[in-house]
């Protein structure tokens, strides 16, 4: 975490030195600082984890936006064409996420990605009940959630 603070400090320093204390200035400073820290990575010893973590967060954000756009287009198609193609179903998905924040993030992202809407979580947080728009093969959807969103979230938060 101290590497992250260092990176923030570098971003502020960059913004102050270039005289551009604006959001783009800070963002650019953060990117430059990240690059600099990445180059001197061997000097930190054990904190190399930070770079993998940033990569995973970026991956989560990019994939999430991609999925949101794809899902919106498929919903738009279903709304605008006369026939309903949906073959909906309610499925149970085993949930590996632990902790309130992780469960919240996973369920929110599931609701925003194609074809699935999280309905409910059991008391013990072990099972997630999902409403799927195309539930021909429940096992396949469960596997998609487990290997997709849920894994990305756990990688980013661990």
């Amino acid at each position: 975490m101290s590497v992250f603070l260092l990176n923030l400090l570098l971003a502020i320093a960059w913004a102050a030195l270039t005289g551009q204390f604006t959001l783009p200035g800070l963002a650019l400073g953060f990117a430059v600082g990240f690059g600099a820290l990445w180059v001197i990575q061997p000097l930190f010893g054990t904190t190399g984890n930070y770079f993998a973590k940033v990569y995973r967060w970026v991956k989560l954000l990019v994939l999430f936006h991609y999925e949101l756009i794809v899902s919106s287009i498929s919903v738009a198609w279903d709304v605008l064409t006369p026939r309903h193609r949906a073959r909906p179903g309610i499925i149970c998905v085993p949930l590996k996420a632990r902790g309130e924040a992780e469960v919240l993030l996973v369920t929110n992202l599931i609701s925003l990605t194609p074809g699935t809407l999280s309905l409910d979580v059991t008391e013990d947080c072990n099972t997630l009940v999902v409403h799927a728009m195309f539930a021909d093969d429940p096992a396949k959807i469960a596997a998609q959630i487990e290997n997709g969103m849920e894994r990305w979230v756990r990688e980013a938060l661990e």
Partner: peptide
Amino acid sequence: FVAGLGVLRLPDVLIRMHATTKAGTL
């Protein structure tokens, strides 16, 4: 517009929620 129309014409409450969350957020 699609999100609003979806609430109007999709068949049941759960499928309508699909339209409002995804399309509305985007």
